[in-house]
Amino acid sequence: MTHFAELLLNGVSMGAVYALIALGFVIIFKASEVVNFAHASLLLVGGFLVAELHGRIGFLPALLAGAAGAALAGAFVEFAVIRRSRAADHSVLAIVTIGVDIILATELTRRIGTRVMAMGDPWGDAVLHLGPVSIAETRVVALIVAGALIGTFLLAFKHTGWGVAMRAAAEDHETAALMGVRLGRVSLSAWAVAGALAAVAALFLTVFPTPGLDRTTGLVALKAFPAAILGGLDSTTGALVGGLIIGVTEALMSGYQGEFAFLGRGIGDVAPFLVMIIVLLFRPAGLFGTRELTRV
């Protein structure tokens, strides 16, 4: 039972981190109608900046710089690539983001090399004991921070002018433009916010119990794709639920790997994709989505 509670807590915490990534993925899709395959690279940009800078400027400033850097990178991709080809077909644009991803990932991989970079976070490998349940401090902080960011985002999405503009643009581009919404700005801000959220996610993907940031961190972030897709690419609620489902499934499958031995080793890693496929079989638009993937 204790084991289960620990796994569940870890799963929810990881799920919240996946949700941060998935949320960015979803708002980019809503604002620009593009499936951003460069998302994992944006995340890597943020994480890399934190890892590079914390020694010189301290952890918190480094985290802020990482978030700002990833936001800028996202905005730059929107401005330099996506906007120029706005008229183009959306599946073409998605492929363009793959190109951007390859460029970014190649450059970052070259810079990271074979290093495993520490993030300089204050939590280290401390473990928190809640009665019989033990959980890494980093997991608790991840849950709190991700929860707070998601909460703030959702409130802003619901109540601010920015949020209304964003939702209007997502629902009907042309009519939003008729209302005086500047679609370019909406799209740009979506990419920037998504980049910043991804940078924070990068931190929590690379702190304890993970040894640090290395060139495969981007691959770990790929698990958030099934989270976004199974939740429904155009649904913020879907991103949250999808993230949690993926996080919990992964934690439980890895934790009870012995019991699932007949499925082969490493089932925890493929579980997110299995869950996604099963959900899509029954609900092609995802759990909360309104648009099917045929659109992309």
Partner: peptide
Amino acid sequence: RIFARMTVAENLRAGALGG
């Protein structure tokens, strides 16, 4: 072309975004 997924009040708010 109303924003069907938004409330009536939010639709009106959207109308004021360029104002």
